[in-house]
Design a protein around this nucleic acid. Structure first.
Lengths: 200, 200
DNA sequence: TCATAAAGTTCTCAATAAGTTCTCATATGT
DNA sequence: ACATATGAGAACTTATTGAGAACTTTATGA
Protein backbone atom coordinates (compact mmCIF):
# COMPACT_ATOMS: atom_id res chain seq x y z
CA UNK A 1 0.00 0.00 0.00
CA UNK A 2 1.05 3.55 -0.60
CA UNK A 3 2.54 5.91 1.89
CA UNK A 4 1.91 9.24 0.21
CA UNK A 5 -1.14 11.35 0.78
CA UNK A 6 -2.18 11.68 -2.84
CA UNK A 7 -5.29 9.87 -3.87
CA UNK A 8 -5.67 7.62 -6.86
CA UNK A 9 -8.54 8.14 -9.26
CA UNK A 10 -10.75 5.59 -7.62
CA UNK A 11 -9.92 6.73 -4.13
CA UNK A 12 -10.92 10.24 -5.06
CA UNK A 13 -14.06 8.92 -6.66
CA UNK A 14 -14.81 6.98 -3.51
CA UNK A 15 -14.30 10.06 -1.38
CA UNK A 16 -16.52 12.15 -3.61
CA UNK A 17 -19.24 9.54 -3.46
CA UNK A 18 -19.11 9.29 0.33
CA UNK A 19 -19.27 13.05 0.61
CA UNK A 20 -22.21 13.33 -1.75
CA UNK A 21 -24.06 10.44 -0.15
CA UNK A 22 -23.53 11.80 3.34
CA UNK A 23 -24.78 15.23 2.45
CA UNK A 24 -27.83 13.83 0.76
CA UNK A 25 -28.78 11.16 3.25
CA UNK A 26 -27.50 12.46 6.53
CA UNK A 27 -25.61 9.24 7.11
CA UNK A 28 -22.65 7.48 5.63
CA UNK A 29 -22.95 4.79 2.97
CA UNK A 30 -22.60 1.04 3.29
CA UNK A 31 -19.70 -0.61 1.53
CA UNK A 32 -22.06 -2.17 -0.99
CA UNK A 33 -23.52 1.24 -1.66
CA UNK A 34 -20.07 2.68 -2.19
CA UNK A 35 -19.21 -0.13 -4.57
CA UNK A 36 -22.32 0.50 -6.59
CA UNK A 37 -21.77 4.25 -6.38
CA UNK A 38 -18.31 4.10 -7.91
CA UNK A 39 -19.27 1.50 -10.47
CA UNK A 40 -17.81 -1.72 -9.15
CA UNK A 41 -19.32 -4.88 -7.73
CA UNK A 42 -17.00 -5.92 -4.93
CA UNK A 43 -17.56 -4.54 -1.47
CA UNK A 44 -14.15 -5.93 -0.61
CA UNK A 45 -12.62 -3.48 -3.04
CA UNK A 46 -14.77 -0.65 -1.70
CA UNK A 47 -13.47 -1.52 1.73
CA UNK A 48 -9.92 -1.30 0.42
CA UNK A 49 -10.56 2.24 -0.83
CA UNK A 50 -12.13 3.34 2.41
CA UNK A 51 -9.13 2.11 4.30
CA UNK A 52 -6.86 3.98 1.90
CA UNK A 53 -8.86 7.15 2.57
CA UNK A 54 -8.44 6.60 6.27
CA UNK A 55 -4.72 6.27 5.80
CA UNK A 56 -4.67 9.49 3.80
CA UNK A 57 -6.45 11.24 6.67
CA UNK A 58 -9.58 11.96 4.67
CA UNK A 59 -11.88 10.15 7.05
CA UNK A 60 -11.97 8.16 10.23
CA UNK A 61 -13.28 4.65 10.46
CA UNK A 62 -15.00 2.83 13.27
CA UNK A 63 -14.06 -0.76 12.70
CA UNK A 64 -16.80 -3.25 12.01
CA UNK A 65 -19.49 -0.67 12.56
CA UNK A 66 -22.11 -0.42 9.89
CA UNK A 67 -21.67 2.86 8.02
CA UNK A 68 -18.75 3.31 10.38
CA UNK A 69 -16.95 6.23 8.86
CA UNK A 70 -16.73 9.93 9.56
CA UNK A 71 -15.46 12.40 7.03
CA UNK A 72 -12.77 14.62 8.41
CA UNK A 73 -13.70 18.22 8.14
CA UNK A 74 -11.09 20.59 6.97
CA UNK A 75 -11.95 22.01 10.30
CA UNK A 76 -9.29 24.24 11.28
CA UNK A 77 -12.22 25.63 13.17
CA UNK A 78 -12.11 28.80 11.25
CA UNK A 79 -8.60 29.46 10.11
CA UNK A 80 -9.63 28.57 6.67
CA UNK A 81 -8.35 30.73 3.89
CA UNK A 82 -5.37 32.14 5.58
CA UNK A 83 -2.48 33.42 3.55
CA UNK A 84 -4.85 34.74 1.00
CA UNK A 85 -4.07 38.36 1.42
CA UNK A 86 -0.61 38.78 0.11
CA UNK A 87 2.67 37.07 -0.18
CA UNK A 88 5.33 38.85 1.75
CA UNK A 89 2.98 40.42 4.23
CA UNK A 90 3.26 39.93 7.95
CA UNK A 91 1.05 36.89 7.93
CA UNK A 92 1.90 33.97 10.10
CA UNK A 93 1.31 30.52 8.85
CA UNK A 94 -1.19 28.55 10.84
CA UNK A 95 0.32 25.80 12.83
CA UNK A 96 -1.52 22.77 13.99
CA UNK A 97 -0.67 23.84 17.48
CA UNK A 98 -2.87 26.86 17.19
CA UNK A 99 -5.68 24.78 15.84
CA UNK A 100 -5.45 22.37 18.70
CA UNK A 101 -5.46 25.12 21.26
CA UNK A 102 -8.60 26.49 19.74
CA UNK A 103 -10.35 23.17 19.74
CA UNK A 104 -9.39 22.70 23.33
CA UNK A 105 -10.77 26.11 24.13
CA UNK A 106 -14.06 25.37 22.53
CA UNK A 107 -14.63 21.80 23.54
CA UNK A 108 -12.97 21.28 26.87
CA UNK A 109 -15.49 20.13 29.41
CA UNK A 110 -13.92 21.99 32.23
CA UNK A 111 -14.39 25.34 30.57
CA UNK A 112 -17.28 27.68 30.04
CA UNK A 113 -17.88 31.19 28.84
CA UNK A 114 -18.92 34.43 30.43
CA UNK A 115 -19.93 37.69 28.89
CA UNK A 116 -18.02 40.60 30.28
CA UNK A 117 -19.80 43.55 31.79
CA UNK A 118 -17.91 46.67 32.69
CA UNK A 119 -14.47 48.09 32.05
CA UNK A 120 -12.48 47.02 35.08
CA UNK A 121 -10.13 44.88 32.98
CA UNK A 122 -9.83 47.12 29.97
CA UNK A 123 -6.07 47.54 30.24
CA UNK A 124 -5.76 43.79 29.91
CA UNK A 125 -7.64 44.05 26.65
CA UNK A 126 -10.86 42.69 28.08
CA UNK A 127 -13.64 45.00 27.04
CA UNK A 128 -17.27 45.35 27.88
CA UNK A 129 -19.24 42.87 25.79
CA UNK A 130 -16.38 40.44 25.22
CA UNK A 131 -16.75 36.76 25.91
CA UNK A 132 -14.12 35.20 28.11
CA UNK A 133 -13.56 31.47 28.20
CA UNK A 134 -12.95 30.25 31.70
CA UNK A 135 -11.21 27.12 32.81
CA UNK A 136 -12.68 25.93 36.07
CA UNK A 137 -10.49 25.63 39.10
CA UNK A 138 -9.76 27.26 42.41
CA UNK A 139 -6.07 27.65 41.80
CA UNK A 140 -4.55 31.14 41.76
CA UNK A 141 -2.09 32.01 39.02
CA UNK A 142 0.15 34.99 39.00
CA UNK A 143 -0.71 37.45 36.24
CA UNK A 144 -3.72 35.51 35.04
CA UNK A 145 -7.20 36.93 35.09
CA UNK A 146 -9.49 35.09 37.47
CA UNK A 147 -13.19 34.74 37.94
CA UNK A 148 -13.88 35.60 41.52
CA UNK A 149 -17.08 35.07 43.43
CA UNK A 150 -17.47 37.52 46.31
CA UNK A 151 -19.78 36.83 49.23
CA UNK A 152 -21.35 34.07 47.24
CA UNK A 153 -23.12 36.75 45.31
CA UNK A 154 -21.08 38.90 42.96
CA UNK A 155 -18.94 37.61 40.13
CA UNK A 156 -16.04 39.66 38.90
CA UNK A 157 -12.94 39.40 36.74
CA UNK A 158 -9.72 40.43 38.42
CA UNK A 159 -6.07 39.69 38.81
CA UNK A 160 -5.56 37.90 42.12
CA UNK A 161 -2.75 38.01 44.62
CA UNK A 162 -2.43 36.31 47.98
CA UNK A 163 -1.03 38.87 50.38
CA UNK A 164 -0.88 36.78 53.54
CA UNK A 165 -2.36 33.63 55.03
CA UNK A 166 -5.82 35.05 55.41
CA UNK A 167 -6.28 37.75 52.85
CA UNK A 168 -6.37 38.13 49.13
CA UNK A 169 -6.01 41.13 46.88
CA UNK A 170 -8.15 41.71 43.80
CA UNK A 171 -6.47 43.88 41.20
CA UNK A 172 -8.38 45.45 38.32
CA UNK A 173 -6.71 46.39 35.05
CA UNK A 174 -8.01 49.90 34.92
CA UNK A 175 -6.50 52.84 36.73
CA UNK A 176 -9.93 54.21 37.51
CA UNK A 177 -10.65 51.22 39.72
CA UNK A 178 -9.09 50.47 43.05
CA UNK A 179 -7.47 47.34 44.33
CA UNK A 180 -9.44 45.68 47.10
CA UNK A 181 -8.53 43.25 49.84
CA UNK A 182 -10.79 40.50 51.11
CA UNK A 183 -10.49 37.75 53.72
CA UNK A 184 -10.42 34.27 52.23
CA UNK A 185 -13.84 33.43 53.63
CA UNK A 186 -15.57 35.98 51.46
CA UNK A 187 -13.83 34.91 48.27
CA UNK A 188 -14.16 31.93 45.99
CA UNK A 189 -11.93 31.51 42.95
CA UNK A 190 -14.05 29.99 40.22
CA UNK A 191 -11.48 29.75 37.48
CA UNK A 192 -9.19 31.73 35.25
CA UNK A 193 -9.39 33.15 31.77
CA UNK A 194 -7.88 30.96 29.06
CA UNK A 195 -9.44 32.56 26.04
CA UNK A 196 -11.42 35.47 24.80
CA UNK A 197 -13.78 36.07 21.93
CA UNK A 198 -15.13 39.33 20.61
CA UNK A 199 -17.82 39.65 18.02
CA UNK A 200 -18.04 42.94 16.22
CA UNK B 1 -20.97 -2.56 22.46
CA UNK B 2 -18.47 0.21 21.93
CA UNK B 3 -18.75 3.91 22.27
CA UNK B 4 -19.05 6.04 19.20
CA UNK B 5 -21.28 8.82 18.15
CA UNK B 6 -22.90 7.17 15.17
CA UNK B 7 -26.38 5.79 15.57
CA UNK B 8 -27.71 2.72 13.82
CA UNK B 9 -30.91 2.94 11.85
CA UNK B 10 -33.05 1.65 14.66
CA UNK B 11 -31.35 3.76 17.27
CA UNK B 12 -32.07 6.83 15.18
CA UNK B 13 -35.64 5.71 14.71
CA UNK B 14 -35.96 5.21 18.44
CA UNK B 15 -34.61 8.68 19.11
CA UNK B 16 -36.96 10.23 16.60
CA UNK B 17 -39.91 8.45 18.14
CA UNK B 18 -39.03 9.54 21.67
CA UNK B 19 -38.61 13.11 20.51
CA UNK B 20 -41.91 13.13 18.66
CA UNK B 21 -43.76 11.42 21.49
CA UNK B 22 -42.36 13.78 24.10
CA UNK B 23 -43.28 16.85 22.14
CA UNK B 24 -46.78 15.58 21.56
CA UNK B 25 -47.59 14.20 25.00
CA UNK B 26 -45.49 16.29 27.32
CA UNK B 27 -43.98 13.15 28.81
CA UNK B 28 -41.63 10.45 27.72
CA UNK B 29 -42.83 7.11 26.35
CA UNK B 30 -42.93 3.72 28.01
CA UNK B 31 -40.70 1.00 26.63
CA UNK B 32 -43.71 -0.85 25.24
CA UNK B 33 -44.82 2.33 23.53
CA UNK B 34 -41.38 2.79 22.04
CA UNK B 35 -41.40 -0.80 20.82
CA UNK B 36 -44.74 -0.31 19.14
CA UNK B 37 -43.67 3.08 17.83
CA UNK B 38 -40.64 1.71 16.03
CA UNK B 39 -42.44 -1.38 14.80
CA UNK B 40 -41.20 -4.17 17.03
CA UNK B 41 -42.78 -6.29 19.73
CA UNK B 42 -40.09 -6.69 22.36
CA UNK B 43 -39.76 -4.09 25.08
CA UNK B 44 -36.47 -5.73 25.92
CA UNK B 45 -35.17 -4.64 22.55
CA UNK B 46 -36.60 -1.16 23.01
CA UNK B 47 -34.76 -0.99 26.29
CA UNK B 48 -31.56 -1.95 24.53
CA UNK B 49 -31.97 0.94 22.11
CA UNK B 50 -32.66 3.44 24.86
CA UNK B 51 -29.50 2.36 26.62
CA UNK B 52 -27.57 2.76 23.39
CA UNK B 53 -28.91 6.30 23.04
CA UNK B 54 -27.81 7.03 26.57
CA UNK B 55 -24.34 5.77 25.75
CA UNK B 56 -24.27 7.98 22.68
CA UNK B 57 -25.14 10.97 24.84
CA UNK B 58 -28.49 11.57 23.20
CA UNK B 59 -30.47 11.23 26.40
CA UNK B 60 -30.16 10.52 30.09
CA UNK B 61 -31.87 7.68 31.83
CA UNK B 62 -33.24 7.36 35.34
CA UNK B 63 -32.92 3.70 36.11
CA UNK B 64 -36.05 1.71 36.84
CA UNK B 65 -38.20 4.79 36.79
CA UNK B 66 -41.23 4.63 34.55
CA UNK B 67 -40.75 6.89 31.53
CA UNK B 68 -37.35 7.55 33.05
CA UNK B 69 -35.53 9.34 30.30
CA UNK B 70 -34.60 12.91 29.45
CA UNK B 71 -33.57 14.05 26.00
CA UNK B 72 -30.29 15.93 25.91
CA UNK B 73 -30.17 19.32 24.27
CA UNK B 74 -27.92 19.78 21.33
CA UNK B 75 -24.75 21.42 22.47
CA UNK B 76 -23.60 24.78 21.25
CA UNK B 77 -20.10 25.28 20.04
CA UNK B 78 -18.63 25.99 23.39
CA UNK B 79 -20.93 28.00 25.58
CA UNK B 80 -21.51 24.89 27.50
CA UNK B 81 -21.69 25.13 31.21
CA UNK B 82 -22.71 28.69 31.52
CA UNK B 83 -24.57 29.87 34.56
CA UNK B 84 -22.60 27.52 36.70
CA UNK B 85 -20.92 30.06 38.85
CA UNK B 86 -23.62 31.51 40.96
CA UNK B 87 -27.21 32.44 40.93
CA UNK B 88 -27.68 36.14 41.17
CA UNK B 89 -24.36 37.05 39.65
CA UNK B 90 -23.99 39.27 36.64
CA UNK B 91 -24.10 36.38 34.22
CA UNK B 92 -25.98 36.73 31.02
CA UNK B 93 -27.97 33.85 29.71
CA UNK B 94 -26.79 32.46 26.42
CA UNK B 95 -29.15 33.13 23.62
CA UNK B 96 -29.31 31.18 20.43
CA UNK B 97 -28.47 34.38 18.69
CA UNK B 98 -25.02 34.37 20.16
CA UNK B 99 -24.51 30.79 19.18
CA UNK B 100 -25.43 31.50 15.61
CA UNK B 101 -23.12 34.46 15.40
CA UNK B 102 -20.28 32.34 16.61
CA UNK B 103 -20.97 29.60 14.15
CA UNK B 104 -21.07 32.17 11.42
CA UNK B 105 -17.78 33.57 12.59
CA UNK B 106 -16.09 30.23 12.58
CA UNK B 107 -17.51 28.66 9.49
CA UNK B 108 -18.30 31.41 7.04
CA UNK B 109 -16.44 30.82 3.84
CA UNK B 110 -15.85 34.45 3.18
CA UNK B 111 -13.88 34.90 6.35
CA UNK B 112 -10.40 34.04 7.47
CA UNK B 113 -8.12 34.80 10.35
CA UNK B 114 -4.97 36.77 10.86
CA UNK B 115 -2.62 36.91 13.77
CA UNK B 116 -1.97 40.42 14.91
CA UNK B 117 1.54 41.77 15.13
CA UNK B 118 2.20 45.09 16.80
CA UNK B 119 0.26 47.49 18.93
CA UNK B 120 -1.14 49.98 16.46
CA UNK B 121 -4.73 49.03 17.30
CA UNK B 122 -4.36 48.56 21.02
CA UNK B 123 -6.89 51.23 21.95
CA UNK B 124 -9.46 49.26 20.00
CA UNK B 125 -8.68 46.29 22.22
CA UNK B 126 -6.70 44.51 19.55
CA UNK B 127 -3.46 43.39 21.09
CA UNK B 128 -0.27 41.87 19.79
CA UNK B 129 -0.78 38.14 19.40
CA UNK B 130 -4.56 38.25 19.05
CA UNK B 131 -6.31 36.55 16.20
CA UNK B 132 -8.72 38.68 14.22
CA UNK B 133 -11.38 37.17 12.05
CA UNK B 134 -11.72 39.01 8.79
CA UNK B 135 -14.65 39.11 6.47
CA UNK B 136 -13.44 39.55 2.93
CA UNK B 137 -14.53 42.54 0.92
CA UNK B 138 -13.29 45.83 -0.44
CA UNK B 139 -16.02 47.90 1.13
CA UNK B 140 -15.09 50.59 3.61
CA UNK B 141 -17.11 50.89 6.82
CA UNK B 142 -17.01 53.80 9.16
CA UNK B 143 -15.56 52.88 12.55
CA UNK B 144 -14.74 49.34 11.59
CA UNK B 145 -11.23 47.99 11.59
CA UNK B 146 -10.01 47.08 8.12
CA UNK B 147 -7.29 44.91 6.69
CA UNK B 148 -5.39 47.11 4.31
CA UNK B 149 -2.80 46.06 1.78
CA UNK B 150 -0.33 48.84 0.97
CA UNK B 151 1.73 48.85 -2.23
CA UNK B 152 0.76 45.24 -2.73
CA UNK B 153 3.25 44.40 -0.05
CA UNK B 154 2.42 45.32 3.51
CA UNK B 155 -0.67 44.24 5.40
CA UNK B 156 -1.94 46.32 8.26
CA UNK B 157 -4.98 46.74 10.48
CA UNK B 158 -6.39 50.25 10.59
CA UNK B 159 -9.51 52.33 10.69
CA UNK B 160 -10.16 53.71 7.21
CA UNK B 161 -11.62 56.97 6.02
CA UNK B 162 -12.06 58.30 2.51
CA UNK B 163 -11.02 61.92 2.54
CA UNK B 164 -11.60 62.83 -1.09
CA UNK B 165 -12.03 61.20 -4.48
CA UNK B 166 -8.45 60.06 -4.74
CA UNK B 167 -7.09 59.67 -1.25
CA UNK B 168 -7.69 57.55 1.80
CA UNK B 169 -6.70 57.98 5.44
CA UNK B 170 -5.50 55.14 7.62
CA UNK B 171 -6.10 55.72 11.32
CA UNK B 172 -4.43 53.64 14.00
CA UNK B 173 -5.93 53.15 17.46
CA UNK B 174 -2.84 54.12 19.39
CA UNK B 175 -1.76 57.64 20.12
CA UNK B 176 1.84 56.75 19.56
CA UNK B 177 1.14 56.07 15.89
CA UNK B 178 0.30 58.65 13.28
CA UNK B 179 -2.50 58.78 10.78
CA UNK B 180 -1.33 58.40 7.21
CA UNK B 181 -2.80 59.35 3.86
CA UNK B 182 -2.44 57.29 0.69
CA UNK B 183 -3.68 57.63 -2.89
CA UNK B 184 -6.19 54.98 -3.87
CA UNK B 185 -3.76 53.30 -6.23
CA UNK B 186 -1.45 52.27 -3.45
CA UNK B 187 -4.20 50.87 -1.25
CA UNK B 188 -6.31 47.74 -1.40
CA UNK B 189 -8.98 47.04 1.22
CA UNK B 190 -8.95 43.31 1.86
CA UNK B 191 -11.70 43.08 4.43
CA UNK B 192 -12.81 44.17 7.86
CA UNK B 193 -12.66 42.70 11.33
CA UNK B 194 -15.78 40.84 12.44
CA UNK B 195 -14.38 38.90 15.33
CA UNK B 196 -11.44 38.40 17.56
CA UNK B 197 -9.99 35.55 19.53
CA UNK B 198 -7.32 35.59 22.16
CA UNK B 199 -5.69 32.54 23.66
CA UNK B 200 -4.00 32.98 27.00
C1' DT C 1 -50.10 -0.38 54.48
C1' DC C 2 -49.51 -3.90 51.22
C1' DA C 3 -50.96 -6.84 47.56
C1' DT C 4 -51.09 -6.45 42.77
C1' DA C 5 -50.48 -4.73 38.36
C1' DA C 6 -47.44 -2.25 35.49
C1' DA C 7 -43.12 -1.11 33.92
C1' DG C 8 -38.16 -1.55 33.73
C1' DT C 9 -34.10 -4.84 33.43
C1' DT C 10 -31.39 -8.72 32.01
C1' DC C 11 -30.85 -12.65 29.61
C1' DT C 12 -30.55 -16.28 25.88
C1' DC C 13 -31.45 -17.75 21.30
C1' DA C 14 -31.64 -16.78 16.57
C1' DA C 15 -31.45 -14.84 11.84
C1' DT C 16 -29.67 -11.67 8.83
C1' DA C 17 -26.84 -7.76 7.32
C1' DA C 18 -22.61 -5.67 6.89
C1' DG C 19 -17.66 -5.27 7.58
C1' DT C 20 -13.09 -7.68 7.00
C1' DT C 21 -9.60 -10.42 4.94
C1' DC C 22 -8.06 -13.08 1.54
C1' DT C 23 -6.68 -15.04 -3.07
C1' DC C 24 -6.74 -14.67 -7.83
C1' DA C 25 -6.65 -11.91 -11.96
C1' DT C 26 -5.81 -8.12 -15.38
C1' DA C 27 -3.82 -3.99 -16.90
C1' DT C 28 -0.38 -0.29 -16.95
C1' DG C 29 3.72 2.28 -16.71
C1' DT C 30 8.74 2.40 -15.41
C1' DA D 1 10.57 -7.76 -14.44
C1' DC D 2 8.39 -5.27 -11.06
C1' DA D 3 5.43 -2.35 -8.35
C1' DT D 4 0.96 -0.13 -8.52
C1' DA D 5 -3.87 0.27 -9.47
C1' DT D 6 -7.82 -1.97 -10.19
C1' DG D 7 -11.66 -5.57 -9.85
C1' DA D 8 -14.26 -10.08 -8.59
C1' DG D 9 -15.72 -12.86 -5.24
C1' DA D 10 -15.25 -16.43 -1.52
C1' DA D 11 -14.80 -17.17 3.35
C1' DC D 12 -14.94 -15.42 7.64
C1' DT D 13 -16.05 -12.26 11.69
C1' DT D 14 -18.77 -8.94 13.88
C1' DA D 15 -22.79 -5.92 14.23
C1' DT D 16 -27.57 -5.25 14.06
C1' DT D 17 -31.96 -6.60 14.80
C1' DG D 18 -35.88 -9.19 16.90
C1' DA D 19 -38.55 -12.40 20.11
C1' DG D 20 -39.59 -13.61 24.41
C1' DA D 21 -38.80 -15.58 29.12
C1' DA D 22 -37.58 -14.54 33.79
C1' DC D 23 -36.64 -11.33 36.97
C1' DT D 24 -36.63 -6.74 39.80
C1' DT D 25 -38.41 -2.38 40.85
C1' DT D 26 -42.00 1.10 40.76
C1' DA D 27 -46.67 2.76 40.88
C1' DT D 28 -51.20 2.38 42.54
C1' DG D 29 -55.57 1.46 44.62
C1' DA D 30 -58.36 -0.96 48.12
Amino acid sequence: MKEHALLTNKEQKTYDFIEKYSKKNGKHPLLDEIAKGIGIKSKGVAHRYVKALEKAGKLKRISNKHRGMILQEKKSIFFKSLGKIAAGGPIEAITDQQRIELEYLFTNKRSFALKVTGDSMIDAGIHDGDWVIIEEGAKVYKSKVHVVLIDNQDVTLKFVEKINTSEIKLIPANKKFKETIYPFERISIQGHVVGQVRIY
